[in-house]
Design a protein around this nucleic acid. Structure first.
Lengths: 124, 124, 124, 124
DNA sequence: GTGGTCTAGACCACA
DNA sequence: GTGGTCTAGACCACG
């Protein structure tokens, strides 16, 4: 369910966060679903528990999951969709540098938009 | 001409690379133009020359600039636009995770496309 | 395993690159093998870690090694053999000037070919 | 008669040395021929006289040219062909690292020998 | 003056 | 523990 790329330069714990978010968004993980414990997940992924814990902590902070003591960790019942301007600002900056790269490789506006649309639809 | 964000988590030398690429692309820096020496740039930005050198070396490796021994560093005469599938693949992955973030904040396809278009046009 | 010539005019970090490539090619270093950490290697060679890091980074850029965050550095699983005309062109130029030197010392075609053959076989 | 590549990583003065040697070897420059003064050569090549002087000095040290005060600089009458083991040793090392590069790109012994033969014959 | 290399040491994020 | 980044300062070859 989760695929890690150890060679990638995005940290393992971020990859976990992204992929859980992805599954939540696609509906693979519905509200209330229990997710594996830190230890189980660590075993499955052959990584150290600390890394999983870090991912879960961040997911909880973002309100994506909820931990109930003695019961386990669950997908949050109501996940708020709040704009968060700061984050959009930051994402924009990151988009910008990627767009520069694409432009330097000859991509024009429509090529890029098409790429984005395809990516968006892949995950719907 | 170059603005550094020391609080950012993208390294200084990468910020330099991005911004020089940006200026080259916008036409602010034409082919053959000399760019400030490693030391001058370091002074201007209040950073150490080594950091500027690292940025310049990477830019040279990418064919954006050319250095002439004892003379200085110049914008390359012909900058190749080559597709480079691997890089597009990698950028796509990074786009994907950003799109997930935006979707979770309630952005739909058209919102995101609009954001991209604005970013693209800003740098034309 | 690695021998540095501090008197040589080829930089330390290039010597490291060359010798690791050499060992990979001879099969002394198989795919997946871990290589000494930046710090250990630096200690062994009595040089500063930064120099080793520079060598490792360049090797990674060339796809010879792969680094896994917090784990260490490994010989890449699949090392592509791609022709790269530009590089061959550059090597040819360098060969050319060396051949001139040898010719001026009286070496004829067969002498040089023999020298090359011996060098090639030494590293098989 | 002399073509400089300012972007190359081999120094200008070495390029001059190599090319003069090349012309001597091919017979374009016969023994006793006068070659341009330091200043003239510097003007022709649009470089600073110091660089030409350095090249001439080294060529004189190697016995390729001779300077006669008040007359000019000439191709030496008798150019000794002496083996010079040290130099061969050094060239071998440089060959070796180039051969490693070629091998890593898939070149086998015969490919390399063929490349060498072609280069040799080009300059005969 | 230029860039290239190296040192010695620091801080950081990641696993 | 790992590698990545940055600093401050040195020396060098080149032009």
């Amino acid at each position: 369910m989760i695929n890690l790329d150890f060679k990638s330069d995005t940290p393992i714990y971020e990859q976990i966060i992204e992929q859980i978010k992805y599954h939540v968004m696609k509906g693979n993980l519905e509200a209330g679903t229990i997710i594996p414990s830190v230890r189980k997940m660590a075993l499955e992924l052959s990584i150290t528990p600390g890394t999983v814990a870090k991912a879960y902590q961040e997911l909880e902070r973002q309100g994506i999951i909820e931990t109930i003591r003695g019961k386990g960790t669950f997908i949050a019942l109501k996940i708020e969709k709040k704009p968060d301007e700061e984050k959009v600002e930051q994402i924009s900056k990151e988009f910008q540098s990627k767009i520069i790269e694409l432009k330097m490789m000859g991509y024009d506006e429509e090529h890029i938009v098409e790429l984005i649309r395809n990516l968006y639809r892949e995950m719907s």
